[in-house]
Design a protein around this nucleic acid. Structure first.
Lengths: 208, 208
DNA sequence: CAGCATCCGCTTTGATACTG
DNA sequence: CAGTATCAAAGCGGATGCTG
């Protein structure tokens, strides 16, 4: 554990969460407790030994705790402690700063549908908070995601929606550009996006 | 420039500002334009070649720009671009998260008076916004700092105050603990703190 | 002296293989 | 499934040298 050796809040924070991969591990755990294998799959590119040492460091720093999963599965789960959860505003601030970076397209980068949660929460707002909920399903590759506008808030969850108002199938950067109004529907379609259901559902979402 | 290669805002942000020392350089520049030598002194422990490459990376990423200082000095200044300034909320979020870490005392860490700016802004509030300004000078070692409560806001600046209501001379962790109300004045005095002037001036400040 | 670039020993990281 | 072991490559810290 190398330290900056400075009596400065930023430096001490970075002593704990500033190493490579650490905040990305926290990102994964902010979506709920995970098994080692889940984390490894959610962090493409990380070496397994690094993941193991980071988890040990985070546990020692009091940001996460191991726990035994309930009987049927009987494995180890990693869960953020309250102190670890307190990093959410940090990750949100970085996520907001990153908005222009997401507009640059996916290039050759890896992508997991779970990662849509962050931009959906940070970049989208509900244009019509007083109307009944609008639900869309987004299919970008590995897993479908449900994005829902309800009561002025945006919620996301993994999985399919029986009652989706619309279903988008597209590359993640195209889907995001459409939802954020950076491109219009014809342009998105020209870039391979498929839309089923009621296309008016999209208007429910506006850039935050 | 190593990349995580993930289409995720957090990962892309960390591709740019996640390397060692980078956010600490931004911390320095958030306090105003600096010369190379100022930066080197404000970042105890950084290797000079690392500072040079980080500055080049930050310039290429559009977060800072070099400029020539006005005639009398005639040197190069490094200044954050607007995009670089937008990192302020990120550093503030990390600074807030670090609050318990600052309570752990200075241990053997290096300290610069300028670093008091962050905790003063983030951890202190004005208890009596309607009264005339209260000004205190804090002497912690290298340079004096002025902390001022005025109109409900906390301001800091480097230097001395002619008209200070009180002057504190102490180790930075002791001064901070006193201002934040974590220890009382007798305890602080027992730990070597000296207070001149009106000790009621301290009551103007409360923990944020 | 300010502003780097170069070199060297050490630490961290990444890729892969292996184990209970 | 959940890691540990191994080793090469990259990154870092410190010292020193170069250039205006």
């Amino acid at each position: 554990m190398r330290s900056y050796g400075q009596y400065c809040g930023l430096a001490r924070a970075l002593d704990i969460v500033g190493e490579r991969w650490t905040l990305l591990i926290v990102r994964e755990l902010l979506m709920g407790p995970r098994r080692y294998t889940d984390l490894h799959q959610g962090l493409p590119g990380i070496a397994t030994n690094l993941l193991a040492t980071r988890l040990a460091d985070l546990e020692e720093a009091g940001l996460l705790a191991r726990e035994d999963a309930p009987p049927p599965v009987a494995t180890t789960l990693y869960r953020l402690t309250p102190r670890g959860e307190e990093l959410r505003p940090v990750i949100e601030a970085l996520g907001r700063w990153a908005r222009p970076l997401m507009a640059q397209g996916i290039k050759g980068d890896a992508f997991r549908a779970e990662w849509l949660t962050l931009p959906a929460q940070l970049y989208l707002a509900d244009r019509e908070p007083d109307r009944a909920a609008t639900v869309i399903e987004v299919r970008t590759g590995d897993q479908p995601v449900v994005i829902e506008a309800r009561d002025g808030a945006i919620r996301t969850r993994m999985g399919s929606a029986e009652d989706a108002d619309a279903v988008i199938t597209a590359r993640p950067d195209i889907a995001l550009a459409l939802l954020l109004g950076r491109i219009d529907l014809p342009t998105a379609r020209a870039r391979g996006l498929k839309l089923e259901g009621n296309q008016r559902a999209l208007r429910r979402f506006k850039p935050a």
